[in-house]
């Protein structure tokens, strides 16, 4: 059987809210080392990966590897019934066709359980190599959210260029052009408010703003986001989920015809 317990439902609620518009369904692959997910958006230009490590859970048991096909909209409906501070337990028998979600309030005076029907989802598993990126930028996640939202009011695509001057986001559209540059800045006392630019070589890539905006739905998960860029490769936008793991969004760059 599979059983995983998290002390705060809020984490899972935020994760599912971050994914559900980009990917409607996907397989939660559970194994003794944790829960993972790979899912593409409907146009197949972006990939979401999720890794939740077994030791990040309060309790984790998985006797047999399983692939649980989840409709994220439906999972979201169920998670809306959990309080942010509720303890949440996910449970499934081996080869089950449903996933049980149990919510317990902090003082344990309210216990509810919901069964989510599982789906059979055929999905292609992609091999993502570990690699060195030309530029890795860590910035406040709220700053990333603001930049991509502001630029969306001007254009559809953004040119992201990392140089020793900083990371610049540029767009243009019918009403004009916009450029926003963030510099390496370790002045703020709080590490969460700092911007770190680790540059091996300058790089510039163009992306669809619609997707970058969608990734920002993960902002409530964590105060920092990491962007990894290399010429002609998908950008990686990564949000760490405390000690539990991380969610990564990969987006193919736009290239000249």
């Amino acid at each position: 059987m599979f059983e995983a317990r998290l002390p705060q439902a809020a984490v899972l609620k935020k994760l599912v809210e971050a994914l559900k518009e980009l990917v409607t369904e996907g397989n939660f692959d559970v194994s003794p080392s944790g829960i993972s997910l790979q899912a593409m958006d409907s146009s197949h230009v972006c990939l979401v990966t999720l890794q939740l490590n077994d030791d990040g859970f309060e309790h984790f048991r998985c006797d047999r590897n399983m692939s649980m096909g989840i409709h994220f909209g439906n999972l979201s409906k169920i998670l809306k019934c959990a309080g942010n501070e509720d303890t949440i337990t996910l449970k499934a028998e081996d080869n089950a066709d449903q996933l049980t979600l149990m919510f317990e309030s902090a003082n344990q005076d309210r216990i509810s359980d919901f069964d989510l029907k599982l789906m059979s989802i055929e999905s292609e598993h992609l091999g993502i190599p570990d690699q060195d990126y030309s530029a890795e930028v860590k910035m406040p996640s709220a700053e990333y959210q603001r930049i991509v939202r502001d630029l969306t009011s001007m254009g559809d695509t953004v040119l992201v260029s990392a140089t020793k001057e900083g990371i610049k986001f540029s767009t243009s559209g019918d009403i004009g052009t916009a450029n926003i540059t963030l510099r390496h800045n370790t002045t703020p006392e709080k590490e969460d408010e700092q911007t770190h630019i680790d540059l091996k070589e300058p790089v510039a890539l163009t992306f669809a703003l619609r997707y970058l905006n969608n990734f920002a739905k993960a902002t409530p998960l964590t105060p920092q986001v990491k962007l990894s860029l290399t010429k002609d490769l998908p950008v990686v936008v990564e949000y760490k989920v405390g000690e539990l793991g991380q969610v990564r969004f990969f987006l193919a760059p736009k290239i000249d015809d």
Partner: peptide, 13 residues
């Protein structure tokens, strides 16, 4: 501008 599918960058594992 065009956009390749994400699977063009990562092979099947």
């Amino acid at each position: 501008m065009k956009q390749k599918p994400i699977s063009a960058f990562f092979g099947a594992s």
